[in-house]
């Protein structure tokens, strides 16, 4: 589950590239969390993501994903996966998630400085990080 890692590009092109994911931890806080995931999706849809997808409905926004259908099909283990190209929207989503204390884990993939500054603005202390060390090996 590291599919938002290893994006390739210049720092400049990452200024407008944020992946936001949220999910419960299986076996710890996933039981009965469907309403929390649904609320997370509502907050994201209200903000207007650049793209959002679902492994359950096997659709994303470029395929005409229906927000209501996605929300309706949410289960306790459904991950939320979306991306934004506007920093301000990420800030707004995190602010709402914090205010509502949903308690689902949230990760943001982006340039570290940008993500840290977003956290600071929202009032969050980043917990941990997954860092790409690039591609290795040969044929």
């Amino acid at each position: 589950m590291t599919h938002s890692m290893h994006r390739v590009g210049s720092d400049e092109s990452f200024q407008e590239d944020y992946v936001v994911m949220s999910r419960p931890a299986m076996g710890i806080n996933h039981v009965g969390c469907t309403p929390k995931i649904q609320r997370t999706l509502e907050i994201i849809f209200a903000e207007g993501p650049t793209n959002i997808g679902s492994l359950t409905t096997q659709e994303n926004m470029t395929m005409g994903l229906d927000p209501q259908k996605l929300i309706a099909k949410t289960e306790d283990n459904s991950p939320v996966m979306c991306c934004f190209h506007e920093r301000s929207k990420v800030v707004n989503v995190l602010k709402r998630l914090k205010e509502e204390e949903l308690g689902l884990s949230v990760v943001v993939t982006g340039l570290l400085d940008n993500v840290q500054s977003i956290c600071q603005e929202v009032g969050l202390t980043p917990h941990s990080v997954n860092i790409s060390l690039g591609f290795h090996g040969q044929d």
């Binding site: 890692m5 949230v106 943001v108 980043p126 990080v129 997954n130 060390l133 690039g134």
Partner: peptide
């Protein structure tokens, strides 16, 4: 808020990508 691992990796010639995936600490 620092990440000392980045410098340690650089010391052995491993460069990290600046595009990182951050758990922002909202889980409960």
């Amino acid at each position: 808020g620092t990440l000392p691992v980045v410098a340690r990796l650089e010391n052995i010639g491993i460069k990290t990508s600046k595009n990182m995936k951050v758990n922002v600490g909202l889980g409960r």
